[in-house]
């Protein structure tokens, strides 16, 4: 059994980094900005045909 717990404020008794590092809103905003800077390399080249072709059968 591990004793690590989810504690986003970087709290109690964690060792190997299971708890998220305390973060400032600025760091979080920076992550979104970094992602958006490279978004065109990540997104399917033709977003419209990708979205149109994403057809699934219903499941449970």
């Amino acid at each position: 059994m591990t004793t690590q717990h989810f504690s986003p404020r970087g709290g109690e008794g964690d060792d190997e980094g299971a708890a998220p590092v305390p973060t400032t809103p600025a760091a979080s905003t920076q992550a979104v900005d970094d992602l958006l800077d490279e978004i065109d390399d990540v997104l399917e080249t033709n977003a419209e045909s990708f979205v149109r072709g994403f057809v699934q059968k219903g499941g449970q």
Binding site: F6, P20, A31, D34, L35, L43, E44, F50
Partner: peptide, 30 residues
């Protein structure tokens, strides 16, 4: 497209995975 690709299981294509790499997602496990 972002909504759909959010959950692509490939880390280079999944938007959520890219956001995690950029430091924008809290972790529970290692």
């Amino acid at each position: 497209a972002i909504d759909l690709q959010w959950s692509d299981v490939r880390p280079e294509r999944g938007i959520c995975a890219r956001l995690r790499t950029a430091g924008g997602v809290a972790a529970v496990v290692t």
